[in-house]
Structure formats: structure tokens, C-alpha cells
């Protein structure tokens, strides 16, 4: 499973990197970025999903 942020949808609401700072970071404008390759493990999948379900812009995608 892989997580990605759609940069066109992200508006820098800042929820993802607050909820899952081990998965998401931010750029110099405050937009969300995926740290590393975005590959999720059994340990990180749950917090990635929680971040996804808190993004007001629906900008986070988790894919097989």
C-alpha cells in the first residue's frame, strides 16, 4: 500500500502532518508532502488512513 498527496488538491490545511508526522511533512509554503517513498506498513497504515479521513480537501490517496 502506498500513500500520496495530490498536489493540485492540497491547500495546506495542515491536518496530515499533525496527525501522522512520521508519514507526512510540509514544504516551505506549508503544503503537505509524503516523506520517503510513501510505502505503508502494518504499523503506519492506520495513521495514514486517519490523516486521509481528516483532510478537508480530500487530497490524500491510499493505493494498492
Amino acid at each position: 500500500m502506498k500513500v500520496r498527496i495530490d498536489a493540485d488538491l492540497c491547500q495546506g490545511q495542515g491536518r496530515c502532518f499533525s496527525i501522522a508526522p512520521n508519514i507526512f511533512g510540509f514544504d516551505d509554503l506549508g503544503n503537505g508532502v509524503v516523506l520517503g517513498d510513501g510505502e505503508l506498513t502494518d504499523e503506519t497504515i492506520e495513521s495514514a488512513r486517519l490523516a486521509q479521513s481528516n483532510c478537508p480537501e480530500h487530497a490524500i490517496f491510499i493505493e494498492e
Binding site: Q11, G12, Q13, L50, S53, N54, C55, P56, E57
Partner: peptide, 15 residues
């Protein structure tokens, strides 16, 4: 509340 997609800061380009 764990899931909370609130719009307190607006939505879209004027966030």
C-alpha cells in the same frame, strides 16, 4: 472526535 474534516479554515484556494 477522531474523524473531523471541518471547514473552519475554509476550503480550496482561499484556505
Amino acid at each position: 472526535r477522531a474523524e473531523n474534516r471541518h471547514l473552519a479554515f475554509g476550503l480550496g484556494i482561499h484556505r
